[in-house]
Amino acid sequence: MRRLAERTTTGVLVFALYLLFSAFTGPWGVWAPDELLAGGVLALVVGWVAGPLVWERGGWRLLSPQRWALFLVYLVGPFLYAMAKANLDVAWRVITGRIQPGIVRFNPELATDFGRTFLANSITLTPGTLTLDVDDATGDFFVHWINVTDPSPSADAVCGPFPAWARRIAE
């Protein structure tokens, strides 16, 4: 029963993504029948094969619409601001060549895989910081930082408001 639920959910999500991908292909701004057929077949195959893998490590809570709303707020608000700021900072370092690189270690105190992946991806997408490794047991992050101001920094010093948002959205 659980397997069936996992496969169905994955299939429905894949079909929704395909609908998005093939929007406006029909004659009046709707979906063409052959696109619907192709999407249905793909959703069945992908849902059946990948379904049990997707939810293996307890991802059900990520389906809550509240988390998605928060994620969108995060994406256009604090994340975009931090990325723009860091992009300009790294652009300046490219021109002047002033770098002070190093690999720092800090613990953002995230417990779940999704929280850690979320934070690691946010850190890597922000210029100037790059996640090298995460210790699975302790949750320590190893981050290559282009401008080390403090050899043993706190999580907030490296990535600002990201850990708090990762806790809010993914944990």
Binding site: G102, I103, L132, S152
Partner: peptide, 19 residues
């Protein structure tokens, strides 16, 4: 980056290397 570090490439002029 992780593959590079695991294969032994040291970061250039690094202040610290906690990994």
């Amino acid at each position: 980056a992780r593959a590079a570090h695991r294969s032994g490439i040291k970061p250039f002029r690094a202040v610290v290397d906690r990994l």
